[in-house]
Nucleic acid binder design. Structure first.
Lengths: 107, 107
DNA sequence: TCGATATTTAGCTAAGTATCGAAATATAGT
DNA sequence: ACTATATTTCGATACTTAGCTAAATATCGA
């Protein structure tokens, strides 16, 4: 859980996740959105991988990253739970948060 | 936003927020729940104050901290929005997330 | 095999963070 | 005024992080 919040604590990494929400992208494609060096971006990807927030697929020489939405969901939801556990509106809320995050992705 | 996630990235600080969810507590009372020194706890409180996640009230020689639930709500919600903005189920979801976090606090 | 391309690893620096013990501050009670 | 209590500030140390350039790795195409 700390790993996830640590990953989210950097604006560059949050933006990477946002970009990946739209569609999977290669490391280079992602990097081109930011004013930092490729190695720096690579380090950010490593942090996101470490937090299990993205998956990497290597095809030839390029690596495509994909958002692991369910992990992000579970983390935010799990945390929100600490602040509202044990209510009978739990199920409804869970679905709502999930929909909020997934919007347009799953329905 | 980075400040909030940075604050949440530390387990001690998350636990402090959890404790404060039940009721406001003094610095000493909070500190007694953790195996670290008072100065260290004071630093954690400063981070949480900096992130605007808690309020401090001084009464005599003791300082009572109180959770600013709405700030936490807005942060999580604002972030979730990035991953699901522009949907018409927005209003419903907002209320649901709010309820999730506030559970038993506001109704 | 050679050169170009995509990405990561290595090695570094500067800046930030968590922790501590000791000292400072502020207030209360005697 | 003095002492005890609650909390923070100070100064130091150890560790982590974000960023860079240069070099390594891997794959593709000629």
């Amino acid at each position: 859980m700390s790993d996830i919040f640590k990953a989210l604590a950097d604006p560059t990494r949050r933006k990477v996740l946002e970009l990946l929400r739209q569609r999977p992208m290669t490391a280079g494609e992602l990097a081109s959105h930011f004013p930092v060096s490729r190695p720096t971006m690579s380090a950010h990807f490593a942090v996101l991988r470490e937090a299990d927030l993205i998956d990497a697929f290597k095809i030839g020489t390029t690596i495509t990253y994909q958002l692991k939405l369910s992990v992000l969901e579970d983390a935010l939801l799990g945390f929100a739970r600490l602040f509202g556990a044990g209510t009978d509106e739990q199920a409804t809320t869970d679905a709502a948060v999930t929909n909020q995050i997934r919007k347009g992705t799953s329905e």
